[in-house]
């Protein structure tokens, strides 16, 4: 490990060693994600560093979308004298209602997975008197 890497790790472990996300609960890394509404779609972005496109699995079950991605290298987090190894990211997100699940699409660029979820266009038409 380089000087800078150990410097960063020491710093992060000092500050967040006891609350390093929920990584330790299921021994899987929880990626950062962000959802926003754009035009007639929801856009979900998931930050997946150290991941190849071919190792990403997206599954949709009921109203939940799960992203699982295998890391290209094992990532270790040390807490005190113990070291925990992680080899994949996993996150399940409850989707907003009214999504056209048949039209969901995804792209992966610069380590960010972008999932576009168009909304169903089944609104009730209101006539103007």
């Amino acid at each position: 490990m380089s000087d800078f890497a150990s410097f960063i790790e020491k710093q992060m472990n000092s500050f967040f060693g006891d609350a390093h996300f929920d990584d330790f609960i299921h021994k899987e890394l929880v990626p950062l994600s962000h959802i926003k509404e754009k035009h007639s779609s929801w856009i979900l972005e998931v930050d997946l560093p150290l991941v190849d496109k071919k190792n990403i699995e997206i599954t949709l079950l009921d109203e939940h979308l799960t992203v699982k991605a295998k890391l290209t290298k094992i990532y270790c987090i040390s807490r005190g004298s113990s070291v925990t190894e992680f080899d994949y990211f996993k996150k399940t997100i409850k989707l907003p209602s009214g999504i056209n699940t048949k039209q969901i699409s995804a792209i992966f660029k610069n380590g960010i997975l972008r999932i576009t979820m168009p909304r169903l266009a089944n609104g009730k038409k209101i006539s103007i008197e």
Partner: peptide, 19 residues
């Protein structure tokens, strides 16, 4: 040079602070 090598790890290690 050293920073470039750590780009992916910086993204991983800084998740908590980002949130």
């Amino acid at each position: 040079t050293e920073f470039k090598k750590q780009i992916d790890y910086l993204r991983l290690q800084n998740r908590q602070l980002m949130e």
